[in-house]
Amino acid sequence: MAEPNILLTRIDNRLIHGQIATQWASTLGANLLLVANDEVAGNKMRQNLMNMAAPTGVDTRYFSIQKTIDIIHKAAPRQHIFIIVESPADALRLVKGGVPIKKLNVGNMHMSEGKRQVATTVAVDDADVAAFHELKDLGVELQIQRVPSIAPEDPEKLFR
């Protein structure tokens, strides 16, 4: 089986929302938004809400992390896939499970108790930083970019 055509993987704790639906999907030329998230995989309400956001002609899938790992290599070449995950930990699970993620976009990681703001829309804790280190060591290219039209920020910010 040929390697799945993964255009980009993004960490965004809002998953599919306005920025994804109106900007990223069309800029990338994606025709499949794959949300890899254990909670959403079992939550029809959240799936249906995200389906409302998805642009016409773009399919959506809501797989658990494990199902994504199990099924990703069955993707057809015509499927241009944009994977969206909630956290660096989930991205790391996908990579360790054999999902061929080369480029990881860090979009929205909201500020919360115990986290520190390292970029405009990115807040991390020690566990996040450890996951980013592991991802980098596994050869994944990291980039911080909120929306396609603005310049990426220095990915080294993730390790501060």
Partner: peptide, 21 residues
């Protein structure tokens, strides 16, 4: 006028293509 229809029993496998995911 947005409405959310949630059918927990829906089998979404039928949405999948014969090939692909």
């Amino acid at each position: 006028h947005a409405r959310l229809d949630v059918d927990e029993d829906a089998d979404d496998d039928e949405l999948f293509d014969a090939d692909g995911i």
